[in-house]
Amino acid sequence: MIRHLVLFKLNEGVERDDPRVVAGVKAFRALGGQIDELRFWECGWNVSDRPIAYDFAINSAVEDADALRRYLEHPAHQACAAQWREFATWVIADYEF
């Protein structure tokens, strides 16, 4: 299995209640039920106020590298990523477990 972690940082001046962010969160919350390759899916807002903390996180898992590739290339995933590019940056980590 491969764990796929993504941490998002909202761009300066962008708040959680921005309509683009609200739509982006809604899209990510629905994504788990749209892509067969996903074996585990959760996402949510960070609750820590530490200065180094990111704002939003996705924690997901897929079977293998091929499944990860299919997930990343899936049109629904691509659409979500395009939304978030408008108002956030992110870092990822993919590791086997």
Rank of each mutant, 00 (worst) to 15 (best):
D55E: 06
A27P: 03
K9V: 07
Q83G: 05
A53E: 14
F87G: 11
I2K: 11
E15S: 10
E12H: 09
F56R: 04
L5F: 10
R39L: 15
H77W: 07
A53T: 14
D55Q: 05
Q78D: 13
K26W: 00
E15N: 05
N11I: 02
K26G: 07
F87Q: 04
A57M: 08
D36G: 07
D36V: 12
F87M: 03
I2V: 01
L72K: 11
F8K: 08
R39S: 08
Y71T: 05
L72C: 04
G44I: 03
A27H: 11
W84R: 04
F40G: 04
A81Y: 02
D64S: 06
D94F: 05
D49Y: 09
W41C: 03
A88Y: 04
L68A: 11
A93Q: 08
D17W: 02
V62N: 08
K9M: 01
M1W: 03
Q83C: 00
T89K: 03
G32S: 06
D17H: 06
D64P: 10
S60R: 07
H74M: 03
Y71S: 05
V91M: 08
V6D: 08
E63C: 00
P75N: 10
E42H: 06
Y54M: 11
I2F: 11
E42C: 10
L31W: 04
T89W: 00
I52Q: 14
E96I: 09
R29L: 10
M1F: 00
A93V: 15
V21I: 12
G24E: 09
V22T: 13
R29M: 11
H74S: 06
R16P: 02
R29E: 15
L7H: 07
R69S: 14
N59G: 01
W90S: 15
R70N: 09
E86L: 13
P19H: 04
A76V: 08
W84K: 04
A67R: 07
E73N: 09
A65W: 07
W84H: 01
F40T: 09
W90C: 04
I52H: 11
R39E: 15
G32H: 03
W41P: 08
P51K: 08
Q78M: 07
V91C: 03
I58P: 05
L10V: 11
I58D: 09
G33L: 02
K9F: 00
G44V: 10
A57C: 13
W41H: 12
D64F: 05
V25W: 00
F87E: 13
R69T: 13
Y54W: 09
I35Y: 07
R39G: 15
W84S: 10
W84D: 08
E15F: 01
L10Q: 04
R50N: 05
A61Q: 15
K9N: 12
D94G: 12
T89V: 14
W84E: 04
A67H: 07
A76N: 06
D17A: 10
A88R: 06
P51E: 12
W90G: 02
I52Y: 08
A67M: 07
V21N: 06
E12V: 06
V6A: 13
Q34E: 15
L10D: 02
L38Q: 09
F97Q: 08
Y95F: 15
P75W: 05
E86Y: 01
A53Q: 09
